[in-house]
Amino acid sequence: MTDEPSVSEQESSSPRGRRLQGVPPAGSRRIGDLQSGAPWSSQQAVGAEATLRDIGFEPAGVVMGSVYSYGYPYRARLRSGTSSSYGSGSYANSTLDGPMLTKRSGGYVHDWSIGPAGQPVMDMGWTWEETRSQQRHRRIASEAVDHLVQEARAIGAHGVVGIQFGTTSMGKDGIGADVYELSVMGTAVRAPGVEPVKHPFTTHLAATDVAKLVAHGYAPVSFHVGISVVCAQLGATTRRSLRSMDNGEVEQYSEVTEKSLQIARRDLERTSLSAGSVILAATPLVHVNRSMNTTYEATVRIPASRVRRFEHSGVQSGLHYQPIVRLNEQP
């Protein structure tokens, strides 16, 4: 691909001449325009805008990060990577591997144990922590967030609110590699007259919620995606219950999914920043992949924002930031 050199050329010709790593030329141009006073954009609702200004922030522009990736399944045993071609929409260059399965499982394992955080746990052919596939998904998510933060920093923002997180699956290619795009997008906000910062705060909460938090003594810290991939080789009990003609739980499947959810939750919680802080999570996204009745893989992603205690001496306006109880709430 001949894109690479032309990209750096275009990036260096952006108004401030600042190269944003991993951000496409058009993105750099857009950020450059924002730096030099182009109209800002915001994804927040009109009412929310008012609450944002009430706590002293103003919108700085919409920022995003996107990573397009593919990874081969373990069977192929191939090294794979994200394409470096801009044409296919890829802005990540890391080398990735498929999920790792080490041993065959002879039977069903009842005794689950999880090692200390970060340690691979292998138990009779089950490996559910730190598989390469999990590392890959985590890296992709944090790269996307990094790109978003980078864009925010470039336009002098102090924070990003209302981050929307999404993955778009492009299905599988000819040899079974899974292809997906992960993108995050949010509204960067700025506190006028305050020096630019190295680490803007990030949150998926909308501006209204941020104002409510501030009114109740909390402040957003950072946006994370808790990610876990648990893969298991089917045991004999599972095969039996799949062939059965009666009702019954497929315990291995249940436990793989549940473990995956728990690990994703722990992934969120172990990014411990300040003691006793609270993580406000969105609904977990669970994706299951069964291949040929031999493996069962559960991928879980939980987008979430950490908040911390924050006491301030400022005065918020007469707007009331009461949590709302609606009498017509749908259950």
Partner: peptide, 24 residues
Amino acid sequence: SIAAQLVSSHEDVVDHTKTSAGAP
């Protein structure tokens, strides 16, 4: 302003743990 206080206290928190935002 509240925003200025929020930004400056945020920097303290983040510097304290030496993380880059978003990275686990």
